[in-house]
């Protein structure tokens, strides 16, 4: 059983090793999930992702900023049940503007330099997710919560 520093390490490694996360948003009580590229701030309290404005997720986020994300390191083998780790992330997403947008973009592009033209396009919004908690699942069913102290 991991203690908080070990869980934090698991989360840090997951967020560093994985390029994509599943993002869940909601509209009118209907959940909606899709894959996004993301980057995490060094303190793990903020995540950044980008999205073009004419998308469902953008529209959903305008109506309800509460999000859940899933990041995991599964490899689609049977061993995943014992070896894979996953973090369910709860938080609130907000579009970044001005200087914050530039700083967030820099963080995002440091991890995803190949997405530069996509992320820098004028119609692409930059979102910051303020993380409330990570629910870390390891060893198939072992679940611990890490709540952000603010």
């Amino acid at each position: 059983m991991e203690d908080a520093p070990a869980l934090e390490r698991i989360v840090r490694e997951l967020l560093a090793s994985q390029r994509l996360a599943v993002l869940s948003t909601e509209t009118g009580g209907a959940p909606y999930s899709n894959l996004i590229a993301f980057a995490a701030a060094p303190d793990l309290k903020t995540l950044v992702f980008t999205t073009p404005r004419p998308t469902r997720k953008f529209s959903n986020l305008c109506g309800n900023a509460r999000v859940s994300l899933l990041v995991d390191n599964r490899s689609n083998r049977e061993e995943d049940f014992a070896e894979a780790a996953a973090a369910t992330i709860l938080g609130t997403a907000r579009e970044a503007t001005g200087e914050e947008r530039e700083a967030s973009l820099a963080l995002f592009l440091e991890k995803h330099p190949y997405l530069s033209s996509f992320a820098r396009s004028p119609e692409c919004a930059v979102f910051r997710v303020e993380v409330e908690a990570y629910y870390v699942v390891s060893r198939f069913q072992s679940v611990s919560e890490l709540h952000v102290r603010r």
Partner: peptide, 16 residues
């Protein structure tokens, strides 16, 4: 004793 973290508060939800 269980180690703590300055940034996060740990709550074990499900123990196997």
């Amino acid at each position: 004793p269980v180690m703590e973290s300055a940034s996060f508060l740990q709550k074990d939800r499900q123990l196997v």
